[in-house]
Simulated assay, not measured.
Amino acid sequence: MKYLAAVVLLACAAAHAESLPTNGTLVVVPAFGEVTHVNDQATAILSVEEIDKDKAAAASRVNQKMKQGLDLLKKADPQASLKTQGYYTYPVYAEETPPQPGQPLQTRKLRVPASWRVGQSVQLVTVNLDNLPKTVAAAQSVLSLNNLRFGLRPETTRQLDEQRIAATYQNLNERINAIARAMGRKVGDAVLDTVDFEGSGNYSGNRVEVTGARVIANATNVRAAEVAEPSFEPGETVLSMRLVGKVRFK
């Protein structure tokens, strides 16, 4: 009898849950979409650094090598965009021996630089990825490759924006259909009240999230006349979008 009574109560509860009215219900539905594209642009940072007791000598060698490096980059990839940056000059001091216990403190002397460190960097932006290993190898005869990353050209990103919006809106429709079935309602009973492509509000996160495959290369300054070509894999970039829709059931 106790078992039978429990079954009856559960059946009543289920019937009550199924008959829960949903007329006029407003449902907030987040949706997501993303598109993937092979990276078609590379940004490389190359630099040169010299250390010398003579500040002028160090600066002179840096200036000469940077000029040689720029000429090599322009010759290897004439269509690349170049921008010099990060010129620095600062002193390097010799390490001072700390006083031993019981040794009297000497009068502090004016510190004199033991040498000078001078350096400069150049940024290269190119879409010629097939020729990139050859370009970098040519410049590495006088410059060091400090950083390399791949991404999408602005033109490519704009072209993919329409696909990203379509994928996100399709996901919204799929989720609305699933919610309607779960609520025991027909999709035709639902009216799309609001579509927020900005993703604003407490229920949403960032509008666009861009994550790309990145390749980082670190290299020391190479003095050889010729450098073997490095190997790079551009990878791909995923462009994602989030929107929030409000659906009201009749």
Score class of each variant (00 low, 15 high):
K2V: 11
Y3R: 15
L4H: 10
A5H: 11
A6S: 14
V7K: 13
V8H: 09
V8T: 13
L9M: 15
L9R: 11
L10N: 08
A13H: 03
A14C: 12
A14M: 13
A15F: 10
A15D: 07
A17E: 09
E18L: 14
E18T: 02
P21A: 14
G24K: 08
T25R: 14
V27M: 14
F32I: 00
V35Q: 09
A42M: 09
T43I: 15
T43N: 12
T43G: 07
V48F: 15
E49L: 10
A56P: 00
A59C: 01
K65H: 12
K65E: 14
K67P: 00
Q68K: 13
L72G: 06
L72W: 01
K75G: 05
A76T: 06
Q79N: 11
A80I: 06
S81R: 12
L82H: 05
G86F: 09
G86A: 15
Y87N: 02
T89A: 11
Y90D: 03
P91A: 15
T97C: 00
P98L: 08
P98Q: 07
G102F: 09
L105H: 03
V118G: 02
S121K: 13
S121R: 13
T126E: 08
N128A: 11
N131F: 02
N131G: 05
A138R: 11
A139T: 10
A139S: 13
S144L: 02
N147T: 13
L148D: 08
F150G: 07
F150L: 05
F150A: 07
L152S: 05
R153I: 02
T156A: 11
E162I: 05
T168F: 06
Y169S: 09
N173C: 01
R175L: 09
A180H: 02
R181Q: 14
G184Q: 06
K186W: 01
V187F: 00
G188Y: 01
D189E: 15
V191D: 10
L192G: 04
D193I: 10
T194V: 14
T194D: 13
T194R: 15
F197Q: 02
G201F: 06
N202L: 10
Y203M: 07
S204T: 11
S204G: 14
G205S: 10
E209W: 03
V210Y: 01
T211Y: 07
T211D: 10
R214Y: 03
R214K: 09
R214I: 09
N221Y: 08
E226V: 15
E226P: 00
A228V: 08
E233R: 05
P234I: 03
T237F: 01
L239H: 01
M241Q: 12
L243V: 06
K246N: 07
R248G: 03
